[in-house]
Design a protein around this nucleic acid. Structure first.
Length: 216
DNA sequence: GGTGGGATTAGCT
DNA sequence: GCTAATCCCACCA
């Protein structure tokens, strides 16, 4: 399995102690591969009626509109993939294998049809709620995998097309939450679970994290 | 430890 | 009708 470790990975987070703790829509309006890297280390927050759950993003995959048949938008716009063609910074949620939801972040520009699949989170807050939703006590399996993390976070089709800069489901920058910003050991490798375009190195993960769905 | 099959549904051909 | 950006558990070594 080929993989590539980046020596100059992701832009360093701003050291400014009064930096905004929200992310604005410009953060998402970048190339899909770039966004897949930049999302590593940021926080996915869901303020649900049952409680707040927060996970640190440690694994992503980029899906491109051109030369990428594994991408849902590869054959044009449909009712299902319409959010991918919407403004960046919104969510794209779909049902897979009849039982699991996958959560994506729309990237690039409106009308392009690209997104970043979130594949794994490090559980940060609301871990008991995650355990109840997942019906497991195993911390390492709570959010390791796209279907698992949506279940743990309580993400459903209701969040399809949601604005991720605010609202119940949103993303916070690396320096948010007042936690120490951990160094990210970014590794690019092949995407998982697809039957075409398998040679592209479009999966990005923080190899230092023990919460990945699979080692790169 | 590793593997194979079943669950279950929307979208596409 | 078939496939899909998946997961879990039973089963076997």
């Amino acid at each position: 399995m080929p993989s590539l470790t980046m020596t100059t990975p992701v832009p360093e987070p701003r050291p400014d102690p009064v930096a905004p703790t929200r992310i604005d829509s410009f953060f998402f309006a970048t190339s899909t591969e770039s966004l897949a890297c930049r999302l590593l280390g940021t926080y996915l927050v869901h303020d649900s009626p049952q409680g707040v759950t927060i996970g640190r993003i440690v694994e992503t995959e980029a899906y491109l509109s051109r030369n990428d048949p594994a991408c849902h938008a590869a054959r044009g716009r449909t009712e299902r993939n319409a959010p991918m063609f919407g403004p960046p910074g919104h969510g794209y949620v779909y049902l897979i294998y009849g039982m699991y939801f996958c959560f994506n972040v729309v990237s690039a520009r409106e009308g392009v049809g690209e997104a970043v699949l979130i594949r794994a989170l490090e559980p940060v807050e609301g871990i008991e709620l995650m355990r109840e939703r997942r019906r497991t006590k195993t911390l390492s399996a709570l959010c390791a995998g796209p279907g698992r993390l949506t279940q743990a976070m309580g993400i459903t089709l209701e969040h399809n097309n949601a604005d991720l800069t605010g609202g119940a489901l949103h993303i916070l920058p690396r320096h948010a939450l007042g936690r120490a910003v951990a160094k990210i050991e970014m590794v690019a490798s092949q995407r998982i679970g697809i039957s075409c375009a398998q040679d592209l190195l479009l999966r990005f993960c923080d190899a230092a994290s023990p919460f990945l769905s699979r080692r790169p």
